[in-house]
């Protein structure tokens, strides 16, 4: 009885290992600005990185206010990794160095999707990000989703090779 059980479990384990993993769903992160803000329809990934690192402070003709989701959330980890090319700890070190030297100011944090949508929509010059799936139908009149340009190719979040996606490994480096 004991051996039967062992053999049965082994067979099940082998079958399980041979299973083709289910195709994972894409979970793109959308870059959003206020619908009132007249910006280009796309933003370069390098420009997005520099805005969020505080290396540039203006875009599309005016000063930019940047908004982050809370540290440790999956969209934020993905954004930090794939846009900035950094881990959360590296980014923490960066902002610490900036603070102690009177350098750049970090983006402001919001606690969730509702707050992010509300804050970004409320004023031109604000930029943020959130999972595309978190956008609601009513947001279309208040928010605009920017396409992202990498290496001369511009991709919308709904396109397959859009560069900011939670489905990709969180440790992936930003590509610009």
């Amino acid at each position: 009885m004991h051996w039967r059980g062992v053999c049965g479990l082994t067979v099940l384990a082998l079958l399980g290992a041979l299973q083709t993993p289910a195709a994972s769903e894409r979970q793109p992160i959308a870059i959003v600005v206020s619908a009132e803000w007249e910006t280009p329809p796309e933003i370069q990934l390098a420009t997005l990185r520099r805005l969020y690192m505080g290396r540039i402070t203006r875009w599309a003709g005016q000063p930019v206010e940047r908004y982050d989701l809370a540290s440790g959330t999956r969209p934020r980890v993905t954004f930090t990794s794939q846009v900035m090319g950094l881990t959360e700890r590296e980014l923490e070190d960066y902002w610490l160095e900036q603070a102690l030297s009177g350098g750049a100011i970090p983006p402001r944090e919001v606690d969730g999707m509702v707050e992010m949508r509300r804050v970004i929509a409320s004023r031109a010059g604000r930029i943020g990000y959130l999972p595309l799936a978190a956008l609601e139908s009513g947001d279309a009149a208040r928010l605009r989703v920017l396409a992202v340009s990498v290496g001369g190719r511009t991709r919308h979040p709904r396109e397959a090779d859009y560069p900011i996606d939670m489905d990709r490994a969180s440790g992936a480096k930003g590509q610009d």
Binding site: Q27, Y67, A70, S71, G72, T73, R74, P75, V77, E88, R89, W95, L96, A99, P106, R108, E109, V110, D111, G112, M113, V114, E115, V119, L130, P131, A134, S170
Partner: peptide, 26 residues
């Protein structure tokens, strides 16, 4: 809070939409 210890690992796929918990920065 700027240096407060916060979780670094992935959170579940749910995203907090805590409208009642407004952002300190906002």
């Amino acid at each position: 809070p700027a240096y407060a210890d916060e979780p670094v690992t992935d959170r579940p796929d749910t995203f907090p939409d805590s409208g009642s918990r407004s952002s300190r920065r906002a």
